[in-house]
Write a protein that binds this DNA or RNA. Structure first.
Lengths: 344, 344
DNA sequence: TGGCACAGGTATATCGTTTAACCTGATGTC
DNA sequence: GACATCAGGTTAAACGATATACCTGTGCCA
């Protein structure tokens, strides 16, 4: 026989006080003597009572949940654990506060993403959302403003926007270090393979790359745009290695592409890192699994998620103070880079 | 000036009916004439009204959300997109029905997982949960029963249990095919590297492996237990390749370990697949990224997630009928397997 | 000694739905 | 013609919390 779930009324009765008193105790509002507080608290724990999320949400218009919608096909999503790490970080901050994370995965259909945000807002299921993958011409800011949903962006907004955002300190350091590393090893022909051009970071990173090269009087040997897929990376490697002015090193916009690129190179009979140095981006576990182990730009994705959550919670008035700082990107040198051919 | 969100009362007023009528229209209950239905519907869409999730949850004790708690460190979580694919499948079924997915990631601390389930139940945030990674001696079934939370398990329960579960049809086919493939290529010394022994599938798969081998009068050259980490896989390869009765082929319990194993072998100067054939499990995108491309046992994780969601929704009385069927595991032959050394 | 502030509560309206119970006019049945 | 039935609604009471307004006994000061 499963007994009905306890409500605040049961707790009040057991403690011999009014329901209002119980509410005040659990919310720390109003003034309650230590004695009754204790009685209430022991009564609550004796009954294993916790306020019903629905009732709280209805009365106080706060759901204590935040939302996230990931716009990716299952394939891409699983090839790149980017989101997973971000979510881990977000959860780190959310769960101590009893906040929940409502996740939606929507695929690439154009209207699906907006519909997901709308539903979150219209049904009032969440207090705020975290946005990822800042896009150029991103319409989500206006949408969320119209929907009256608090938001925080992970990354750089495509233009000045009142939506708060978080990013690592010294965001350019990693790629700069990667270029220094390569140039220091005698590389002069260095290519860049970016992700889709609608991402804001695509442009940023490419610019950083070019600037760092320019500081040494160099220009990119190639600057290709790809799509985060294995096929895309393989294709990019094909054009790099078969064309003229063949590069001796290449930076990829993420680790999956870098790994796919390495095997594509090997398939073409090109040795990595002997004939071609390869650098990835993000430092996913994947990079340590493969041979040669991937040199890559580490990004503190978990920290990014944590910071985003904190900023959002602060905007919701739930916490105050400074977000934890995010470790700056740094170069992790492993085995996929070596001195340029013909140089020791 | 942002106007207050519309409520059912506003819709009723605009349509010129009572709120009860509106409720009946949107829930398809009671009897309402087509004419008033239309009036209500147009009024609702004119106001962009959607029922408040909190109010519905409070009144009807249904949250229209399901929960999932993942017990893994961020590292392991991101190394293996297992969860991600499952979640994609779950979402496929949930979102058309307007259900939400509440995700919690909890790390390895022993009490954290139970606490997460308790919170989900006590705060009544979800109607049900999906359980993954069936464990031996799993205590979650009792817990959830005590918490009165509907659940469905992805995988095989560790013992007969009233909790419904989903698994692929012909669950043993994949591993069996893998063994046939190897034996057919002349392999006689075949090793198995499993995941942690507390997983139910660990034992199952090992048994299938041994049985399939026995059908050819063979026994495993080795049967190692590992932990899903890259280091674990490398260590396993070390003992396999340096000990006596060195195997010519090895099956790993997941793709990440298989990939890590391949590079460990190469590091030891052992050619894959020339001297050692390697087979993974799950068919993650990762397997196509590396060189040689990984031969692996494909598992329909998205389908598994979809089926789990359907069974759960059926248990909640939300849908009826048969769960979509899950594609049986099958062997995907790529480049990491070859005839046994000394045989063409 | 009257008045007032304040600690420590209580009573009750309210959040936005669903739903059980009730109403009413039209139709069918004998 | 009387009565049951039914389609097509309406009314009002929950659901489980929070928060505003209100009450009551002390202590303190002028």
């Amino acid at each position: 026989m499963v007994s009905r779930k306890p409500t605040i009324t049961d707790v009040a009765a057991l403690a011999g006080v009014s329901v209002a008193a119980v509410s005040k105790v659990v919310n720390g509002k109003g003034s309650i003597s230590a004695a009754t507080r204790d009685r209430v608290l022991t009564a609550a724990s004796k009954l294993r009572w916790t306020p019903s999320a629905a009732a709280v949400a209805l009365r106080s218009a706060k759901t204590r949940a935040i939302g996230m919608v990931a716009k990716r096909s299952p394939d891409l999503l699983s090839a790149d654990p980017h989101f997973t790490l971000l979510i881990s970080g977000i959860e780190d901050e959310l769960s101590p506060l009893g906040y929940g994370l409502l996740l939606h995965i929507v695929g690439e259909e154009p209207t699906a993403e907006e519909a997901a945000y709308r539903r979150l807002a219209d049904e009032r299921r969440v207090d705020g959302v975290v946005l990822t993958e800042s896009r150029i011409g991103d319409t989500r800011f206006e949408l969320l403003r119209a929907l009256d949903l608090t938001a925080v962006l992970v990354g750089t907004p495509w233009r000045d926007d009142p939506v708060p955002s978080v990013q690592a300190t010294g965001p350019a350091d990693g790629i700069r270090a990667a270029v220094e590393h390569l140039v220091g090893h005698g590389h002069r022909h260095i290519a860049y393979v970016s992700g889709p051009e609608d991402r804001v970071h695509t442009l940023h990173r490419r610019r950083v790359f070019e600037d760092a090269l320019a500081a040494h009087g160099l220009t990119p040997s190639h600057s290709l745009v790809s799509d985060f897929t294995a096929a895309g990376a393989a294709h990019a490697i094909g054009t790099l290695l078969t064309g003229h002015r063949r590069p001796t090193a290449v930076l990829f916009a993420n680790d999956s592409m870098a790994v796919a690129g390495m095997s594509a190179a090997r398939r073409l009979g090109v040795d990595v890192p002997g004939e071609l140095s390869v650098i990835g981006h993000d430092d996913l576990p994947l990079g340590e699994l493969v041979h040669p182990r991937l040199t890559t730009v580490r990004q503190d994705l978990v920290g990014l998620g944590r910071a985003a959550a904190r900023v959002l919670l602060a905007a919701l008035g739930e916490v105050e103070g400074t977000p934890t700082d995010i470790r700056p990107p740094e170069l992790v040198v492993r085995e996929s880079t070596a001195p340029a051919p013909g140089r020791t």
